[in-house]
Amino acid sequence: MTANRIALFVTCMVDQIMPEIGVATTRLLRRAGFTVEFPMAQTCCGQPFFNSGFRAQALPLAQRTIEILEPYEAIVIPGGSCTGMIRVEYPHLLQDNPRWYYAARRLAAKTFELSEFLCKLESDDWRQSTANCQETVTYHDSCHMNRILGLHDEPRRLLQAVGYTIAEMEEADRCCGFGGVFSIRLPEVSNAMTAEKLRQGRATSATTLITADPGCLMQMRGMRRNDDTIQIKHLAVALEEAITGKPWSME
């Protein structure tokens, strides 16, 4: 894949809560040889509103996101759920308006989740070095990335390419309990789901649980104890650590 103007859509959660994921993503893309642009007008893709049934409130956010991202040749997102929103739900949401529908379809065709994008590249410059970390990790399949986008192998391929050994959980594709507003609406059930996910993570030989979705990351970190035996990291950060051979740093 070649693309000259690629835009980073970081997602509102990464923007406000976990900006290091955006930084790590930018570093990976730059190492792969791209000039990364960050459209400053971006806020939220609208998924929280859409998933809560507030479609009239999601619609203007979808429209402005389309307008903001339209000029670029490819859009990369460090999160499967927001990528799924743009790729699959935007065309649904805008299906009654032909102009917007086709704009949504065009955007959908050039929007990629990070690991998907890196796997489509012909070169593996993104890992540049002889990265060969020895750590054993486990990977949590976020639901939308796995089931809506069908991205199951891609993140694992990247992790293995930089030397990680993957110890699979009993149910890697079992929901972490986030589900957006679900985690606030039914917090007891949500937390129980997260506890089960973390239990499965700890039961592997891995020291780190990796996910490619900011929402899952936030949820699982929220239930992680301070003295927990398992770390929780975003894919982009884990890849950067393996490539640089150093613990993550914003410097």
Partner: peptide
Amino acid sequence: LPHASSLCGA
């Protein structure tokens, strides 16, 4: 009930 789901798709 419509909200008693994380929309995981399983």
